[in-house]
């Protein structure tokens, strides 16, 4: 079991293989640091405290969702429903805010968690492919959103003076609460992955599901927890966004699942499951946000360059991952 899990760097292995593993894990971090350094020198307004906290704040919504997706992908699955669930969470939070702060927090987390739970049940117990199940979830959540918002025509507003607004608009030490929340959530995620049996089971399931099953690991329960958490976190991301924008915007989250998946993969988590880091996903999210910011800094560049550049980097990362995997095996 430990062979596929917690701390592969303690394993014996050739220097080359170790280097390959390091590159796989920290590749995105190197690109991120380089991009930030270069941009700071080239653009006057990039390295300002205001701009950097903006980048962090804007990345935090995606980051929350990416945390759940990281565990899903490490378990060998995929969750395509997160974009719709994110939007649904936001609409439910803004709706709930009319009835008090607790409703704004609990309603979206409960509903989105339930969607994740049902998906997890069908995947774990029914043995259906996550791609199809969560695709159904994507349609279901978006449909539910349109139903409760009068086909998207009604946008619920968070009442002025509601404490719920503070959650994403307030801050501590000049840094917005969402950034603190993301830091705490990722620290917790790292602990869960490396220090709990659930974390090691996730990696084992993603590495070799049949073997994990034969070893008597709780495969089904682990998947159930993973998809439920992904639903909860996607809903939580939407909830934060509702607090940030003071409204339950109905047009959010379209195509977001792809952005989240690419951030996770950029961060070094293998799309085939079984390996990955929590911190890497945070780096992946930041990298996407920095690319977007830099393209705005250039000013004259068409904003579609962002998609072109992100797509290219992703393609390179996936190709390198594949190549490194063969180096490791040798």
């Amino acid at each position: 079991m430990t062979a596929t899990t917690a701390a592969p760097e303690h394993l014996p292995g050739s220097g080359r293989a170790r280097l390959a593993r390091l590159a796989q894990r920290q590749g995105a971090l190197v690109i991120l640091v380089a991009a930030v350094l270069v941009s700071t020198f080239v653009f006057d307004s990039f390295g300002t405290a205001g701009n950097l906290t903006n980048i962090a704040l804007q990345a935090s919504f995606l980051a929350v969702v990416a945390l759940g997706m990281t565990f899903v992908i490490m378990s060998g699955g995929i969750d395509l429903s997160v974009g719709s669930v994110f939007a649904l969470g936001g609409v439910l939070a803004a709706w709930g805010a009319q009835h008090g702060t607790w409703a704004a927090l609990l309603v979206p987390l409960t509903v989105c968690g339930a969607i994740g739970l049902v998906q997890g049940l069908v995947i774990a117990r029914g043995g259906l492919p996550p791609f199809i199940v969560t695709l159904a979830g994507l349609l279901f959540a978006r449909g539910l959103l349109l139903l409760i918002s009068d086909e998207g025509a009604t946008t619920y507003k968070v009442p002025a003076g509601s404490a719920f607004r503070e959650l994403a608009q307030g801050g501590f030490l000049g840094i917005g609460y969402p950034i603190w929340i993301v830091l705490a959530a990722f620290a917790a995620g790292g602990l869960v992955l490396h220090r709990t049996s659930y974390g090691s089971t996730v990696l084992a399931v993603g590495g070799q599901e049949d073997a994990a099953d034969l070893m008597g690991l709780p495969v089904a329960r682990t998947k159930l927890v993973t998809y439920t958490m992904s639903g909860v976190l996607a809903g939580f991301g939407g909830l934060l966004m509702a607090s940030y924008t003071s409204s339950g915007v109905t047009v959010l989250g379209v195509g977001m699942e792809l952005e989240v998946i690419s951030a996770v993969v950029l961060g070094g988590t293998l799309l085939t499951g079984g390996a990955g880091t929590v911190l890497g996903s945070l780096v992946g999210v930041l990298l996407l946000q920095v690319i977007r910011n830099v393209i705005n800094q250039v000013g004259s560049l068409n904003s579609n360059w962002q998609a072109v550049i992100s797509g290219t980097i992703l393609l390179i990362v996936v190709t390198v991952q594949r190549w490194l995997a063969t180096v490791e095996r040798r």
Binding site: V254, L258, E259, A307, V308, G311, L314, L315, V318
Partner: peptide
């Protein structure tokens, strides 16, 4: 994912 990134914004 790769396709989607390139196409984001077209939908």
């Amino acid at each position: 994912v790769v396709l989607g990134l390139a196409l984001t914004g077209c939908t």
